[in-house]
Computed example of a mutant assay.
Amino acid sequence: MRTLFSTADYKPKDSFRLWRETIFERIVPVELTPAAAHGFAGTLEAAEVGPLLMTRITQSAVTTVATPNTIRQHGKYETLNVAITLKGRVFCAQDDRTAIQHPGDIVVMDRRPATMGSDIDTQTLFVELPRECLERALGSTRRFTALTIGADQVGTSMVTTFFQELVRMAGRLTPDMSNRLSSIGIDLIVASIAERLAHETPRNIQGILIFQRALAHIEAHLGDVNLDPARLAAAVGVSLRHLQALFREQDRNIADWIWRRRLEIAAQRLTDPGFAHLSVGELAYNCGFSTQSHFSRRFKESYGISPSEYRCRNRGAPEIIC
């Protein structure tokens, strides 16, 4: 991994201020509060393997808070973070769930208000990956955010070992090998989370299958401007009320999910060179929006800027594949 920043290179009186500025500007806008007024130390290292951005943070005791305002500034709604605790003890809270992680434990944090912190020195490896890679296999992240995935699980142990080796070898991998190994890493994370969720109260298998079939139908018909909850229910062969209940079990609303996926796909295509020839209006229509004004309004509500501004800011961004 390459070192992006270390407080060892600066005067102690400037350490935390510079650390906070670096985290805010180069990693993610968050509010940081040190446990002690003096003596803060931190090292920030990073590596990229395929679509995965891995960041190893070694730091003194600190509390990190993601607020609605900082999340809007971040804007990375299409990704989420898997945090692997390597040293110390970390607590986190999100979606009305609070948990503590010890070395070897894993936790998933989404782009919603959250708090992470510790009362001792810690080292954590953050793996930023496309959210669709987890939600496509596991459903809403609200099922497992801030849920401790313990080091005692076989899958968790494999994830920790795999990613520690991956960051060690990152600089020596070919692009093809990077993509292959990143896919393996994502599969291991999915398996580890699934193993943890298996310990939760079992749900109706038939209901889960209907829910997954509904998600697949949405993905295949996002460009259909007539797709709505009633048509979706008819397509999967259940009543609208029953389908709404299945979505509520996954902390989702049918209509909201359809519009969210349309916006996410539109955002991906706005940065994909393969769709650069399409105007914003054409791209909007292909993603299921009946008018460009409707698309622009919803996009700005979700991403804080217009589709055109988003395209200009992210022009040339690589396509994420998982």
Rank of each mutant, 00 (worst) to 15 (best):
L147E: 00
H242P: 02
N226L: 11
V236W: 06
T85Q: 15
A233V: 06
S192R: 04
H74R: 10
T291S: 14
R72H: 09
T145Y: 01
C312W: 11
C133V: 02
I106G: 03
L53T: 12
Q268R: 15
V90A: 01
E132A: 08
L188N: 02
I100W: 08
N314S: 03
R262Y: 01
L263C: 12
E21K: 14
D176W: 12
F163N: 00
Y77P: 02
M116S: 13
G42N: 10
E195A: 01
W19G: 01
G288S: 14
T64D: 11
G316A: 07
I100F: 09
E219S: 11
L232D: 00
H199K: 09
A234C: 13
A35K: 06
D228M: 05
Q244C: 06
R20I: 03
P318V: 06
G42K: 04
K11L: 15
A99L: 06
R131H: 04
T3V: 15
L86E: 12
T67D: 04
G274A: 12
Y10R: 09
C287H: 10
H199I: 00
Q59N: 08
N81H: 06
A235L: 07
E31A: 07
G75T: 04
L232T: 10
T67F: 01
I27W: 09
T22R: 10
E301V: 11
I71S: 02
A146V: 13
I189Y: 04
L197T: 00
L246P: 03
T115Y: 01
P113Q: 03
F275G: 03
L173T: 00
E78Y: 10
P29F: 03
T63Q: 14
G304I: 08
Y77L: 13
S279T: 15
A36N: 12
G316F: 14
C312L: 15
L283Y: 10
S140R: 01
Y303Q: 11
P113R: 01
A230F: 07
R97V: 07
L134K: 01
Y310L: 06
A276Y: 11
I258D: 04
E31K: 06
L278Q: 07
T63L: 06
R269Q: 13
V190K: 02
A266Y: 05
N314R: 10
D105W: 02
L270T: 08
L134M: 04
A235D: 04
A230K: 10
R168H: 13
I305C: 11
R97F: 12
A47E: 13
T67Q: 05
F275C: 11
D121M: 05
A35H: 04
H102T: 05
Y10I: 12
R241W: 12
R269A: 03
L209Q: 05
E45V: 02
T63D: 14
T55E: 13
V280H: 01
S60E: 10
S279P: 03
M177I: 12
A284E: 09
V238Y: 08
M1G: 15
K11E: 15
